[in-house]
Nucleic acid binder design. Structure first.
Lengths: 123, 123
DNA sequence: AACAATAGTTACCTTGAAGTTAGTTTAGAA
DNA sequence: TTCTAAACTAACTTCAAGGTAACTATTGTT
């Protein structure tokens, strides 16, 4: 059953909405980005604490690597023992923060309405 | 306004960022919302076409139900045979669209930088 | 000798999101 | 009589995100 794609802009690989969500729709990326947006430099374990410490080491590593790959943060490795690594937000990362903040504000002021709607829907 | 974030406020059930992402971090919600934000009323199969038609019937149903439960869209069922159902965006849904648009604009203008960064990172 | 400290890595496992396929409903048309 | 329409629903399968726990490396400290 073939279906034709009417508008090429909706192609998944080109869709801008999708490209954002694919990066930030995961569980930890935005949280980590916001934490690094508030502080200047943070070490691995400091981020772990700031995020709320229910993130596993593994997922923090994975999340930081993805953010670094996309250019939102950068890593500075100090060749010491025990190891020391500092994470810092880039200008690109900073430019995204206000948008997330706006979305957060929207969420805060509209959550009551959403929750009411959900309750109504259950019945 | 306290800028410092205490650990207890990062509790997942209270975190506003998380409450947004839990709803829109999925594969189809935002796409469907934007489609309904552009057109006024659409039937099930019309949405299916607009989204790009690589969404399965099941996932479209699931997505529409979630959006309806949250109060972003509403359904009008016409008791006809064959069935006719119209979907329309609510004011709450409309109020979210500009934020998504802003994020989209950011994504469009920053994707080149992100892609360059990803290429560099691979090496 | 053993341990602590930091920033990981690796192997394994669980869970849930999403996809696939088939079936349901009812009236009218061929 | 069988087919077709639209908008689902149910049963089943697949796959990747995420979690857990153990392990790594190296040095200084007890």
């Amino acid at each position: 059953m073939e279906k034709k794609i009417k508008k090429s802009e909706w192609d998944i690989t080109n869709c801008p909405v999708r490209t954002v969500l694919d990066r930030f729709g995961d569980k930890w990326s935005i949280l980590v980005l916001l934490v690094l947006g508030e502080k200047q430099k943070l070490r691995f374990n400091e981020i772990n604490k700031e995020v709320g410490s229910d993130i596993s080491q593994k997922m923090l590593t994975v999340t930081l690597r993805k953010l670094e790959a996309d250019g939102f943060i950068f890593r500075t490795i100090y060749p010491e023992i025990p190891p020391k690594v500092e994470y810092e937000i880039t200008d690109l990362g900073k430019s995204l923060v206000p948008h997330v903040d706006n979305l957060t504000k929207w969420a805060v002021s509209n959550m009551p309405a959403i929750k009411r709607s959900r309750e109504r829907f259950k019945k």
